[in-house]
Amino acid sequence: MRLEYFQLIDRVVDINISERRISCEATVPSVSTVFEGHFPGFPLMPGVLLVEAMAQTSGWLVSSINQFKRMSFLASVKEAKLRTFVLPGYVLNIESKLVHDGSGYAVLDAKVKNNGKQVCDATITLRVMEFPNQELAGEMLKMAARVGLTPEMALNG
């Protein structure tokens, strides 16, 4: 996780386009300025960042389904449950499944696990639209490559 850049996914572990699901991995850093404030003496991964990690995982799936020709933006979060504390150093598995591919939006069920134990889950709605500019489109491809996601995987996953 690159908390300071709000890039929360380290790598895509598995993606299956026909089954409309994705699995990603992210390691909570051992040290971060975030933990200096949240909380002093008891560093804890903020719940909003776990929700963001589920949103980003969901976004990679929707981007792949759309072959990186459209951009996803977080629109709503429902039924978010933060079940246990997530501490620095935890290795998280983040899964998301597309439950509805609407016109201009997508609804996904996402969850985060640590050592097989579910730590949080939510229903995520993403707006899906044209890229606002070509710079972002190019940067998203670079970010996708950084997490190990290529257009070829999107086609064949």
């Binding site: 629109a75 709503s76 509805h100 609407g102 016109s103 939006y105 609804v107 709605t125 707006r127």
Partner: peptide, 9 residues
């Protein structure tokens, strides 16, 4: 969007 989702379903 929520309404559209419910209608779609």
């Amino acid at each position: 969007l929520d309404i559209a989702f419910a209608i779609d379903k």
